[in-house]
Structures are given as structure tokens and as C-alpha cells.
Amino acid sequence: MFNYYAFLILASFVFAIGVYGLLNRRNMLRMLLSAEVIFNSVLLFLLTFSALSSSPSTGGVIALLAIGIAATEVGVIVSLAVLMFRLKDTVDVYEISEQKG
């Protein structure tokens, strides 16, 4: 009755919501938040597939490394957004890309 497919369907829906947010926003921080939604769904995919595999511990190890790297990525992007806001007074990615140099 209850199987792994339910986890995959759930992760697919969350992934689609994240993609919607990423495509529809121009604010750098909102895009980061949408990317984090996608990251969460992909992590769920990874752990579901590793639970199905013959060596489930490997998936757990990769997930731990991925969470560490995600924390790093958040630090870098938020710092860049703060710097952009101080320099250009905006975090709109369209405006920033127009103001080259």
C-alpha cells in the first residue's frame, strides 16, 4: 500500500513549485529561496533513491556533504546580495545585469 513512489511524487511537486518561483522572480533573495526549495526536493529524491539502492549508507553520506555545501552556497549568495544592495541599492537581477562595470 505505502511505497517509495509517494515520496517521489511529493518531491516532484515541490521541485515544480521551486522552478515556478525561480522563473517568476527578479529579486535575488527570492530566487535564492526558490533555489533552496528545489534543493530540498532534490535531497528528498536523493535519499529516496538511496533507500532503494543496495548501499543506503552512501546516499546518506552524499546528503550530509550536500547539506554542508548548501550552507556554504547560502552564505556566499546572501553576502553578495547584501553587497549589491549597498553598492547599487537594488537586488533586482535585471537591473544589476544592465549596470555592467
Binding site: N3, Y4, I9, S12, F15, V19, Y20, N24
Partner: peptide
């Protein structure tokens, strides 16, 4: 942004394609 209508169509498509791709795991018991 102007792509809003496009994304409204694309996003359910992404979810449906992923669900279809993972159909072989339909009987993977927990």
C-alpha cells in the same frame, strides 16, 4: 515578468514528466 503564463504551463508539465519518469518505482514497497 512576462514569462508568467509560460511558467504556469511549464511547471505542471515538469511535475507530470517527473511522475511519469518514476513510474517504474510504483511497486517499490517501503
Amino acid at each position: 515578468v512576462s514569462t508568467k503564463i509560460l511558467t504556469v504551463i511549464t511547471v505542471p508539465l515538469i511535475a507530470l514528466i517527473l511522475i511519469y519518469i518514476y513510474l517504474p518505482y510504483l511497486n517499490a514497497t517501503f
